[in-house]
Design a protein around this nucleic acid. Structure first.
Lengths: 177, 177, 177, 177
DNA sequence: TTTTAAGCGAGACGGTACGTCCTGTCTTGCA
DNA sequence: TGCAAGACAGGACGTACCGTCTCGCTTAAAA
């Protein structure tokens, strides 16, 4: 038997409620109970489709972040500017929260790499290959150092992740040529 | 009047128990209750001297990590090799857990920067100034990119933080000259 | 919407566990934690339906004591014999514990009077009115002195509350005629 | 060797602090910790001389109540009036609290009977023997019923323990003659 | 006069119950 | 069969009090 189909309305309500609460309370202070309450949905409905808070927000992120990214990546400067712009606001807080949670949940780490981090690495690689052919030798290292600087600042908050950083990195990479 | 002095024995037992449990269960799965039980101490004793799990482990880290670091930093290669070596084992797991927790606890973030991250940044800066004078222009950016690569790999686990990475970074920095 | 209904099974398990522990350890040594554990129930389930240990045992008493009492009270002698018989065993210990606790909890005192003590007073009054019409003048005082003697002995334990006491009181009341 | 003698000042401070807190917070809400703090004394000093809260207050009562009682008991009416007058205020609350606590502490019950309840029973007996010789037959029962009515009202609070009650009891006892 | 042993206020110690919160599962009736 | 509601067992949270244990300091009788 088939029964009643899944409520698309509930799904959207849950994802939006999750983002709203992350914005208001910060990722780690959000609970599944609160998400369900905020979404006006039953708790079981949430557990039926996702297993953890991280699952919910990972889906919310892919639904939100993906559209905001350039389909065919332009030059390094714009790529970094656009990427860094996305880390401002909820998205940044959530993705940092997911990364933090992944430290104790290897499966989540795997999904994070596959669905969020990996594609961004590939995109940066592509841009670098096209834009700065000389750095080919250690391309992966350069990718690590660029995104590393971003993550390091996002986590440690000793400096901001903004257009200035994009410009400085672009210049430094150009000097590698 | 003075009252009974703090038990140094309990203090050490708690710090060691905390590290032991982090090694066994992973930072986020450790509870203050379990630390007290493992240390054979009362729960109130723990709360008397620390407020949170993060406080306990921050103190454990400064007590453990500090002695393992070179007092006067040598050349860049050895500095990175020794630094990266420390991230292997419990210390790495704990410091990543602390960083994750700091995302929702600004005060912890501040203490982390002051007591752990900041001093390491200063040390790396010093090494770079002495070792690679040409990179002075963007010294802070270079520091961000080096430690960024380390953090990025520690968190995302797409590659290891080891002597090979130290070597590759050293070479790349030399090419900036 | 309705939600899952209350578990009648848990309710009974808690009431019985409470009585069992009172019998084993004595009313004041029973804790809500231990009741929940003994009943195999969660602590929150207990707090959902009752606020205090006294509430649990007040309900347990009304469920246990009420059925053991004569519906239409017979002559004074049998009334006292049956009433005194109930004070033997757990019921006596629990009701004394409740009375003791009511000294620091006025609301509990009120509930005790309404649900346990008051009805017994009314019943004794009725018996006296029918059985010893001459004592009408100070009926409330006589009630106080009869039940007072019972409580005084239950609390101070200088003598037992048994059929002998019932007989002696009956004779003395008859002599008031 | 002898060492420093006990501080009589601390002893008095503790007893007074205990009574003060009983008046303010009610016997069961008073803790030994709070008594020590209120008395400005160390906690160990308290434990050195008494074992429990009940011990402290039992001593406070005998020191306070005893002087307030008639050395050679007069007629029944005045005896009851004076006795009932003592139950008003802290003394009543404390003695009820002690009686409540004695339910779970047989040793305390024994001390209570020996030092407080027993002497009062003996005094009432003596008064009755002199004042109402006819009730000799069941003297103990009459004592139980008189003090019982008092205790019953003190505990259940359905009526006050005052001069009116003293008068009513006196009349009723006279009618037994 | 000096010892010396006990009492003193202060307050940390290991332990345990408190009442609250969230987790993941379950059981209702309605759609 | 999905869904909102909400009760269920379980377990960590941070707080309070318990009775015990050191501290450094009095205090007064014994040496």
């Amino acid at each position: 038997m088939v029964g009643r189909p899944r409520s698309e309305e509930s799904r959207r309500a849950i994802l939006q409620a999750a983002l709203r609460l992350c914005e208001r309370d910060g990722y780690p202070n959000v609970t599944l109970k609160a998400i369900a309450a905020e979404a006006g949905t039953g708790r079981q409905t949430l557990y039926r489709w996702w297993n953890t808070k991280a699952d919910v927000l990972l889906e919310a992120m892919t639904a939100v972040v993906a559209p905001g990214l350039p389909p065919s990546p332009p030059d390094l400067g714009s790529f970094l500017r656009e990427t860094f712009a996305l880390t401002d606001g909820v998205a940044g807080r959530v993705i940092v929260g997911l990364m933090a949670e992944a430290q104790s949940d290897p499966d989540l780490g795997e999904r994070l790499r596959t669905r969020l981090i990996g594609p961004r690495r590939a995109a940066l690689r592509e841009v670098l290959e096209r834009d700065s052919p000389s750095s080919h030798a250690n391309l992966d290292l350069v990718v690590d150092m660029i995104f590393g600087a971003m993550w390091y600042r996002l986590l440690n908050r000793h400096a901001s992740v903004d257009a200035v950083l994009a410009e400085e990195i672009t210049e430094l990479v150009r000097s590698l040529t």
